[in-house]
């Protein structure tokens, strides 16, 4: 803690870098997963190809991806873009499964009703399927976000890692306080991001958070629709 207070400027700078390195991949991964999920969710072949590819990407260790990407993309090995792209790939792979599962969990009856009252397929995807899958999607997004915040720090061993650089420099200088400061800051960031996503999800899905009181009166009033 002392270390953070004595080095506020450096901490702030590394935190900003860390946020940038973790949030951009989450957003990019989410957008990619949503597009893939909404477009291919109903096509079995495309879907199994995507899932297989996603789990293959996810098996590649992050450090391996950080060091291999430059030779594939032609970037410098110290380019932060490598970390951003690698983490975007992870987030997308992690989330595309979540998107598929979340879309699957939308009750068939509701989809049937939507089709029967006259939703076109695209409208239905966006106005019925998507909002109804927000609950499980948010849960998956929280895991992806927290994992990302912690994974960014691995980049420090190749010189790009936001707060992770406190680990490498603290280690080289045998300075545990600095490492502890990094761990604490990363935990705080992860926690804040987790709460933020949970909060936004709650605002977007009021029907999943009905007060038990209101629901109770509905069932207590039983059969009569009109009084």
């Amino acid at each position: 803690m002392n270390w953070i207070l004595n080095n506020t400027e450096q901490t702030w700078e590394l935190t900003r870098e860390h946020l940038y390195l973790s949030i951009i991949p989450i957003i990019a991964g989410l957008v990619a997963a949503l597009v893939l999920g909404l477009v291919f969710g109903n096509r079995r072949r495309a879907r199994s190809i995507i899932t297989t590819l996603a789990s293959a990407v996810f098996t590649i260790p992050s450090l391996a991806l950080f060091v291999v990407l430059p030779s594939i993309l032609g970037t410098q090995i110290l380019d932060p873009l490598n970390v951003v792209i690698a983490l975007s790939l992870y987030s997308a792979s992690l989330l595309v499964r979540t998107v598929f599962d979340a879309l699957d969990a939308v009750p068939a009856q509701v989809l049937n009703a939507a089709e029967a009252v006259g939703y076109s397929p695209i409208r239905r995807r966006l106005l019925i399927d998507l909002p109804l899958s927000l609950g499980p999607l948010a849960a998956g997004l929280r895991v992806a976000a927290v994992t990302n915040v912690s994974l960014v720090s691995v980049g420090a061993v190749i010189g790009i890692g936001g707060l992770g650089q406190l680990f490498t420099s603290g280690y080289q200088r045998s300075y545990p306080d600095q490492i502890l400061a990094g761990i604490i800051m990363i935990l705080i960031l992860a926690l804040l991001l987790d709460r933020l996503i949970a909060g936004i999800a709650r605002l977007l899905t009021p029907w999943l958070h009905l007060s038990t009181k209101e629901t109770a009166t509905a069932s207590a009033s039983g059969s009569e629709a009109k009084k």
Binding site: T147, S150, V154, G164, F167, T168, I179, L180, L191, D194
Partner: peptide, 19 residues
């Protein structure tokens, strides 16, 4: 679980080695 997921492995390793 979420806290454990957020724990950076590199940080834990380096800290424990120093300690």
């Amino acid at each position: 679980s979420n806290t454990l997921r957020a724990l950076p492995s590199l940080g834990i390793m380096t800290l424990l080695v120093l300690l």
